[in-house]
């Protein structure tokens, strides 16, 4: 932990307020993730997790607050410019291009990372997701849910990111497939890429993350070490139980 605390900030948001029309969704959220850090973002349905991510990615306009990526203010910047500073976002619902083949889904995203790193190549993605290599010629829409999830994660890695954001990556997947996804996330984390993981499975998330954040109605109610989070079951009962 102390090791991570001293690292450089990758993505920092301060006092974010976001609205959809007249409904006020984010109420001054502070968020940060450091280089190589794994963060679990939790909260019941509709608490604003996706909105927070989309606000930081510039996909929805935050009305107030700041978003800094590698120290540079990016609120109001174009989404592609934010992504180009080293962030890869795997959205809820996966965002596969069904009209592109599996190979094309991967190739269209390929680029070097911010520091010119090309650790993630097409070959390495194939090694990490052997199931995809058997389906390269298929349309993205022809894959099973688990394969689609592997494809979006693989596609995100093709951009050689410093930070990978996974929103509900195991949603709707069979337990066995979900376990495979968790194995891959762990592997990605070990490779040094920072991760933000949003998922209903708090046990799995807190076991692979350094830090845990809980959102309730657009406000941060908890931000602490995942170890500490695991030691306090009342947090789950109070903020996450159904």
């Amino acid at each position: 932990m102390s090791d991570i605390a001293m690292r450089e900030d990758l993505l920092v948001a301060r006092g974010l307020h976001t609205y959809y029309g007249a409904s006020h969704i984010l109420h001054g959220v502070d968020f940060s993730v450091k280089k190589g850090e794994a963060l679990g973002l939790m909260g019941r349905n509709g608490m604003g997790k996706t909105t927070l991510i989309r606000s930081m990615m510039g996909l929805v306009r935050a009305a107030e607050g700041s978003v800094q990526v590698r120290g540079q203010e990016m609120r109001g910047a174009a989404t592609h410019a934010i992504a180009r500073r080293g962030i890869a976002y795997v959205p809820e619902g996966r965002g596969i291009f069904p009209n592109l083949s599996v190979r094309e889904n991967l190739e269209m995203a390929a680029r070097a990372g911010v520091d010119g790193q090309r650790n993630w190549t097409f070959e390495r993605v194939m090694e990490t997701f052997p199931r995809l290599s058997e389906r390269l010629g298929n349309g993205g829409g022809q894959l099973s849910g688990g394969e689609q999830q592997m494809l979006t994660i693989g596609r995100a890695l093709m951009t050689n990111p410093d930070l990978l954001i996974l929103d509900e990556a195991t949603e709707g997947l069979a337990p066995l497939i979900a376990r495979e996804i968790w194995r891959i996330v762990r592997e990605i984390r070990l490779s040094g890429i920072a991760t933000v993981v949003v998922d209903k499975n708090h046990a799995a998330v807190s076991s692979i993350t350094d830090r845990t954040m809980i959102l309730v109605k657009g406000q941060v109610v908890y931000d602490g070490a995942s170890e500490d989070f695991r030691a306090r079951p009342e947090l789950i009962q109070q903020h996450l139980g159904v």
Binding site: A83, R84, G95, F97, E107
Partner: peptide, 20 residues
Amino acid sequence: MMIRAGSHDRDMVQSLGINI
């Protein structure tokens, strides 16, 4: 590929760092 992808999901294309 980017053109075809953009006809399907503009936000996703941008999230991959491509200037739509």
